[in-house]
């Protein structure tokens, strides 16, 4: 019975790892291919200083890609999960901040031309909150005594 429960838990952990990892890899690809458009989207958020926009547009997609890949492959899994959770928290803050001040923006999460609007921003917020919830749960499992990369 205990083994059965542990088996399910392991499956759930893997499901979360793969979901989070693939989400970040998928989200990074169009940004890597088209950094110019991604920079324009970052500008649209209206919170970053002009001097830093291009550097963020160049580096952030690779951080997403590497973190996603490492979480799935098990290379530095705790560190990559820390990055993913940190990025999700930052995205939630940015989306929430723009919703709060009524600033329309293009998320740029999975494509270059997502429609800006309050409805889509709310769905983004919910999506990122769910992902962060999953990432937070996985982090607590990584921290459990006796849990290693092999059984998680």
């Amino acid at each position: 019975m205990k083994n059965n429960k542990q088996g399910w838990r392991t499956w759930i952990h893997w499901l979360i790892r793969i979901t989070l990892g693939l989400t970040f890899i998928w989200a990074s690809l169009h940004k890597i291919v088209n950094p110019g458009e991604f920079a324009r989207i970052i500008y649209g958020y209206g919170v970053f200083p002009g001097i830093g926009i291009n550097v963020i547009a160049i580096v952030l997609p690779y951080v997403e890609f590497l973190a996603g890949t490492c979480l799935i492959t098990g290379i530095l899994p705790r560190s990559s999960l820390l990055i993913i959770n940190g990025l999700l928290a930052a995205f939630i803050f940015l989306i929430g901040f723009n919703l709060f001040r009524g600033h329309a923006f293009d998320c740029g999460c999975f494509s270059i031309s997502e429609t800006p609007g309050t409805a889509s921003a709310w769905s983004l917020l919910v999506r990122d909150l769910l992902l962060l919830l999953a990432g937070g749960y996985l982090w607590t499992q990584f921290k459990r005594p006796g849990n290693t990369l092999k059984n998680i």
Binding site: N54, V63, L66, C70, R78, I83
Partner: peptide, 28 residues
Amino acid sequence: GVLILMVIAIVLSLGVNHFSSSGIALIG
């Protein structure tokens, strides 16, 4: 680990951006 991943991401991204035909300037 976070530091290592960040350094790899920075080096990789700046390198690819430099040689890519869709690369952008460091300051727009």
